[in-house]
Design a binder for these strands. Structure first.
Lengths: 357, 357
DNA sequence: TTGTAGGCGTTATCAC
DNA sequence: GTGATAACGCCTACAA
C-alpha cells in the first residue's frame, strides 16, 4: 500500500512558496500577507490538507494520546470506564489507545513498555491480579511518565489512585442482608491479590462484626481466575452448598462472578432469595431484568474513567512534575432489587414477588 | 511535565560512537563488530532503551496502528468486536486506537479525519445511522487509506464489508416463532437508515411470507434512536399494545432495544411468553439469566472483529493497491430459551417453565 | 568496521 | 513578508 497525504512541502511547491511560509499561513501568523495566507488556505482546503500528526508529535515531543491498560474490554465495568475516559480525552483533544492484558502480567509489561516508548503521553492503568513486580512501571513513572491507577491499584507507585468505595459497597450490601434477617452470609470474591478484593472483604467482615455476627472462614471463597474459568466458581459454590451449615445469603465480590453464580444457583434450582439471597457487585445494566432482579453494588464506572483522565491530563500538561498525589474514592451505589429481599410469606414463590419500584 | 526517554544519540554520546553505529548495532547489523554491538546492547538494556515509535513511524511512513470507529464501546456487541480486533492486531504488532461517534455524524467525520492524518494505517468502521454523506471517507479510501466496514456498512464505498447474516438471523427468529404457533408477530427495530436494519427487516418479512402469514405495516416499528431514548421504545411498544389486534410475539431487531423492551413488558406485567413471546437480537452474555431467559439471535462479534482486522492488515501490508473487495457474511446463531417457547398448558405460570438444556 | 549526510513532516528561530 | 536552517529521533545509503 502507501497512503500518501498532501504535505506542507507539496503546497509550498505548488504555490512557489517556502515550507515555512506555508506553515505560518496555516497557523494564521500575522507575519504573512493576507493574500498569501488566503491562497494557502484555499489550496489546502481544496486538496484536503491535514497536518501529519506524527510529524507534529515528533516535533512537539508529545503524542496527544492517552494509553489505557485494562484486563478486558468486553466487560460492563471496563467498557463503561473507557466510555468515561474517551469522553474527557476527546474534549481535551486526546486520543485513546487501548490495550488488554487478558490478566497476563507479560502482556501488561509488553503493552505498557510499548505505549511508554513515545506512543502515549500518559497511562490510565488497572493492574493485573497476577502482577507482582511493577517496578518497571514505577520506574517509568519516576522518570516522568504520568500514570493514574484505577480500580485495581497498588501502594507501590506513588501517583493518583481512583477507586470505587469498595469497602463501603461491600459493607452496605452485607448490612442490607443482615437487616433483611439473613444470618449466615457467605462471600464469594475474586483473587485475594487484588486491591479491591481486599477492600470488599474488609467491608464484608466489618459489617458482620458490627451486626454481631461471627466471621466464618468457611463462608469465604476466593476465585483466583475471577470468573474466567466458570468451573472454579461452580466448585466454590458447591463447597458452600455442601457445608453442614449452609449460607442463607451470598455477598458477591466481583462483576463476572455475580452473573456466574446467579446462573449457577438457578441451574441448581436453588430459589433466590428463598433458599439463598444474593447481592451482586456488577455494573451490568440489565441486572433489573435478571431472574430474579439482582440487587447489586454499582460502581461509578464512567465517573472513575472521567476523573482518572482529568487527573492524567493535568499531570501531562502541568509544567513542573507533580509531587503530591491523591487517592480518590468514589461512592458506590447499592441498588436493591428482589434477589436480596427476605420473603415475608414462605408460601409465595420468590420469583413472583413484585419488584420494588 | 516532560517525560524524556533515552535516545540513540544518548547512547552514542555515552559510548563515544556515532548514532548510526548504535542504530545498526541495535538492529544486529553484521557490519558492526561484535564487541561494539554487545556494548551497545548492554548499555541499551541497562538504561532501558526503547526506540521512539513516533520517530520510527515518521521515518517509515506508517504507524502500526489501527483505528476503530464505533458508536459506543459500552455495548456488548461492540466491545466483543473490539476484543476480536485487539487480539488480531496485537498478534501482528499493531496498536488499536478507538473513537466513539455517539451516533453523531460530525464526531464520525472528526474522528475519521483525525485518524487519517497519519495517526493510523487503516480503519475499521461501523457507520453512524445518521451519516448520509460518506464521500469524505470514500475519498480517503480512493486515495489509498485502507478501510474495512463492518456491521453498519454501505454500498457507497467499494471495500471489504463484514456483516453478520442479519437476514438469516431475523428470518430464523421469525420462523421459530411461527413454528411455535405464533401468528401475529411484530417487529421492533432500529433506525431504518441502517444497513443491518434493512436486512433484518427483509428476513422478518420473508419468513412471514414463507409461512403464509400477512405482513402488517402496523406491526412494524422503527426506533430512530435505536434505544438511546427509552421513551421512544416504550411509545412504540405502547402503540403495538393498543392495536385492536395485538401481537402475540415480537421479533426484536436491535441489541439495546431487546433488553429495553423485555424490561418494559415486565413493568407492564405482560407475561413472556404467555401474553407475548419475544426474541432478542443481542449479544448480552447474561441473556440466559434474564427473566425469562431470552431467546436471541447472537452475532459472531469477536469473529467479525478478527476477520475485519485480518482483512485490514492485509490491505495495509499488500504492496499493490487492492482492486477486488469482498463481502463477508458471517452466520448468526439463534439461541432458543424460554421467552419464545409457546406455553403448552395455560395454567402454568410462564416464569416457572423449565429452561431447555 | 565505523561515520556522515540526508530525509520523514512539522515548527520555531533567525536572517533577509 | 518571506525564506533558510535546524531540530524532534530514527533509519539507511553511501563514504571513509
Amino acid at each position: 500500500m502507501g497512503f500518501k497525504a498532501i504535505t506542507i512541502k507539496d503546497i509550498a511547491r505548488a504555490l512557489q512558496l517556502s515550507p515555512s511560509t506555508v506553515s505560518k499561513s496555516l497557523h494564521n501568523s500575522k507575519e504573512i500577507s493576507s493574500e498569501t495566507r488566503k491562497a494557502v488556505h484555499e489550496f489546502a482546503a481544496k486538496h484536503n490538507y491535514k497536518p501529519n500528526s506524527i510529524a507534529q508529535n515528533l516535533q512537539k515531543g508529545r503524542s496527544k494520546c492517552i494509553g489505557v491498560i485494562v484486563c478486558h474490554v468486553d466487560n460492563n465495568f471496563f467498557s463503561q470506564v473507557i466510555n468515561g475516559i474517551e469522553s474527557v480525552a476527546h474534549n481535551s483533544d486526546y486520543h485513546v489507545i487501548i490495550a488488554q492484558t487478558h490478566d497476563s502480567s507479560e502482556r501488561e509489561l509488553l503493552n505498557i513498555q510499548h505505549m511508554a516508548s513515545g506512543t502515549v503521553d500518559g497511562l490510565v492503568v488497572s493492574l493485573c491480579p497476577a502482577t507482582k513486580n511493577i517496578e518497571y512501571l514505577n520506574e517509568l513513572h519516576q522518570n516522568g511518565l504520568p500514570v493514574v491507577l484505577f480500580d485495581r491499584v497498588t501502594d507501590n507507585i506513588d501517583t493518583h489512585r481512583i477507586t470505587a468505595d469498595n469497602y463501603r459497597g461491600a459493607f452496605e450490601a452485607t448490612m442490607h442482608l443482615v437487616q433483611q434477617g439473613y444470618q449466615h452470609i457467605a462471600h464469594i470474591t475474586s483473587s485475594n491479590s487484588l486491591s479491591n478484593t481486599a477492600e470488599r472483604l474488609a467491608g464484608y467482615k466489618d459489617a458482620l462484626y458490627e451486626a454481631g455476627l461471627p466471621f466464618d472462614e468457611e463462608l469465604l471463597k476466593f476465585c483466583e481466575t475471577g470468573g474466567k474459568l466458570p468451573e472454579e466458581a461452580q466448585q466454590k459454590l458447591n463447597e458452600l452448598l455442601q457445608l453442614p451449615d449452609k449460607p442463607d445469603a451470598i455477598v458477591m465480590g466481583s462483576d463476572r462472578l455475580s452473573t456466574l453464580i446467579l446462573n449457577q444457583l438457578r441451574k441448581l434450582d436453588i430459589a433466590i432469595p428463598g433458599d439463598i439471597a444474593l447481592t451482586g457487585f456488577t455494573n451490568a445494566t440489565s441486572a433489573e431484568i435478571f431472574n430474579p432482579p439482582l440487587s447489586t453494588v454499582v460502581q461509578p464506572a464512567s465517573e472513575m474513567g472521567k476523573l482518572a483522565t482529568e487527573m492524567l491530563i493535568q499531570l501531562i500538561e502541568d509544567k513542573e512534575p507533580a509531587t503530591k498525589f491523591e487517592k480518590f474514592v468514589l461512592p458506590t451505589e447499592l441498588v436493591i432489587r428482589t434477589s436480596s429481599i427476605k420473603p415475608k410469606l414462605a408460601t409465595i414463590q420468590p420469583e413472583l414477588i413484585k419488584m420494588p419500584g
